[in-house]
Design a protein around this nucleic acid. Structure first.
Length: 564
RNA sequence: AGACCUAUGGUGUAAUCGGUAACACACCAGUUUUUGGUUCUGGCAUUCUAGGUUCGAGUCCUAGUAGGUCUACCA
């Protein structure tokens, strides 16, 4: 057996080392979303890293909702987040935790800090505090309230808790160092008065801990061995460690990795919200959104998304991934897993003049040529069929052309070879309205004795049997790969006006009638599609997930651009 | 300007005591194919710069340069 060379990314190397040295017997990681929005591709990376590492090394991953800001958080988001993680295929078993479960303990931690003389109640306004903070190259100044006695601090803090003070009137601050070069160490606020209804604790609390006094402490309470987060928290690490040390609690270790950025995508909650609110997209699960719910509705598979994230890797460099790789990963998965079906997006009628008028055949066709053991279904064929308009030209454009033209022959997939004998053109519009062909009766797929060798194969549907459906063709939401990187311009200036094209009247083979919302298919020679939940009995709706690669179209475009 | 972090093809990631720069995507040229899909083959890099140590440097040392993050009672 040849040994597979397995490389570990830098976090896995740290963990492997810790395990080897016996620093930990097993590891615990956590995914800590704030329930104030929907999960997107960037969260998917964090989920894959935290759960993936445990799959590799053994251990556990906790799901913990970081719900310390009641004004923005809700149970609705909690449920959406849980659904998305499950959809990706990860299981936190019974370890569903909430920072709000620890409010009592956190309060005790704060009292401990006060008793150690390491925290104080500050009456300054936020403006005053900002002023006293100093700046990157100027030390801050101590608050006039910095030297309150431990007893006074304890009493005031309790009063804050009991609701004696109004929002914004007092905060609890850690007493660290107002001249630290790290601004986060300049006596950070760790508790604020906030009289708000919490989605889990209701009105029990009038004060809530800040991120820095909740996140690390929750990690510690849960015995998280490795707390993996994104690069933006690097500057928080000294504070994370300081608090753990002063509180004398379990020393979780924070390790940062870079966030996932993808070309033509944005992931900031604020900006995504703007897209929804201004009606650029229909909803958070609009198939053009980078949210997991959007990608799911688009037809992206969890396997495809996970493959993409695995290929992106883990490092500390700012990563800007090509959206083309995401699409390619989805194609790779869908190529193996989806059934091929016949569909015509832009139909033109073909009459097979030498085929009997009242005849209908049921022809066998493979479901997926990638299957190890092939399975087949039957599709109806008749004298009148539809093909793509684009598959017929009045004159073959060049020698490489393989489709239908007067006098040329093509194979109809799983059916017969046909030859174009004539066509009808609307002289007013220049549009081809009907094509006449003859078929070779002895050329039927599987029993072809004609000896003919057509260069191309076309998709088709039977005019008599096809179902009319709607297709939604999606393109990238932005016209620029980096909509955020243009000085003086807003990302809204780069919205792609053609990101959605609705085709209300496509034709599909009758077998798709049985497909239900969420099912993925390949429209042969066109792309991957997914049944949208908007589908109903009278009309099915298909979302285009991604097109098939189209080297012919690429060649055509190249020729066009070189001619210019 | 201060602190912290990062620097390897167009993009992303490897190269584990210093020993032929590897893989994927993209791109280019072919191959196969009853999907112009899939498959398969080949092509594609002075490792940010300048010095230094060494038989040998992507890796070690020194000095630069470029980029990212940080001055919310958000997370």
């Amino acid at each position: 057996m040849e040994e597979k060379k397995e490389t570990h990314h830098f976090i896995e190397q740290i963990i492997a080392e810790d395990l080897k040295e016996g620093k930990h017997n097993s590891i615990i990681t956590r995914f800590p979303p704030e329930p104030n929005g929907y999960l997107h591709i960037g969260h998917a990376k964090a989920i894959c890293i935290n759960f993936g590492i445990v799959e590799k090394f053994g251990g556990k991953t906790n799901l913990r909702f970081d719900d310390t800001n009641p004004e923005k958080e809700s149970t609705e988001y909690v449920n959406a987040i849980k659904r998305d993680i499950q959809w990706l295929g990860f299981d936190w078993e019974d370890r569903e935790y909430y920072a709000s479960d620890y409010f009592e303990q956190l309060y005790g931690f704060a009292q401990k800090l006060i008793r150690k003389g390491l925290a104080y109640v500050d009456d300054s306004t936020s403006e005053e505090m900002a002023e006293m903070k100093g700046s990157t190259n100027q030390a801050g100044t101590n608050s006039p309230y910095r030297n309150r006695s431990i007893e006074e601090n304890l009493a005031l803090f309790e009063k804050m808790k009991n609701g004696a003070f109004e929002n914004g009137s007092k905060v609890l601050r850690a007493k660290i160092d107002m001249s630290s070069p790290n601004l986060l160490m300049r006596d950070p606020v760790i508790y604020r008065v906030k009289k708000a209804h919490h989605h889990r604790t209701g009105d029990a609390w009038n004060i809530y801990p800040m991120y820095d006094f909740a996140h690390g402490q929750s990690d510690s309470i849960e015995n998280i061995t490795h707390s993996l987060c994104s690069l933006e928290f690097e500057n928080h690490r000294p504070l994370y460690n300081w608090l753990i040390e002063q509180l004398e609690i379990y020393p979780s270790r924070q390790i940062e990795f870079s966030r996932m950025n993808v070309t033509y995508m944005i992931t900031s909650k604020r900006r995504l919200l703007k897209l929804v609110e201004e009606g650029v997209v229909t909803s958070w699960d609009d198939p053009r959104m980078p949210t997991l719910s959007g990608m799911r509705r688009r037809g992206f598979s969890p396997e495809g998304i996970k493959m993409f994230i695995a290929k992106a890797g883990v490092s500390k460099r700012e990563q800007m991934m090509d959206i083309g790789l995401l699409e390619e990963c989805v194609r790779q998965d869908l190529n193996k897993t989806t059934d091929r079906i016949m569909a015509v997006l832009d139909p033109v009628k073909v009459v097979i003049t030498n085929y009997p008028e009242d005849k209908t055949e049921l022809l066998p066709i493979e479901n997926n040529p990638e299957e190890e053991v092939r399975t087949y279904r039957k599709i109806p064929f008749g004298r009148e069929i539809f093909i793509e308009k684009n598959d017929f030209k009045e004159e073959a454009p060049n020698r490489k052309y393989r489709r239908l033209a007067p006098g040329s022959i093509v194979r109809l997939k799983a059916a017969y070879i046909i030859e174009c004998t004539d066509y009808i053109k609307d002289e007013a519009t220049g549009e081809i309205t009907e094509i006449h062909c003859k078929y070779y009766e002895n050329s039927r797929s599987g029993s072809d004795t004609s000896g003919l060798k057509p260069k191309g194969t076309l998709g088709w549907v039977s005019a008599q049997h096809a179902i009319t459906a709607e297709a939604r063709i999606y393109d990238r939401l932005f016209t620029d790969p980096f909509p955020l990187n243009h000085e003086g311009k807003d990302f809204m200036d780069f919205i792609n006006p053609n990101s959605l094209k609705v085709l209300p009247q496509i034709l599909v083979e009758p077998s798709v009638q049985s497909k239900t919302a969420g099912e993925r298919l390949q429209f042969m020679r066109i792309g991957y599609f997914c049944v949208d939940p908007d589908s109903h009995e009278d009309k099915m709706v298909f979302n285009q997930t991604v097109t098939l690669k189209d080297t012919w179209a690429k060649l055509q475009n190249q020729q066009k651009s070189t001619k210019k």
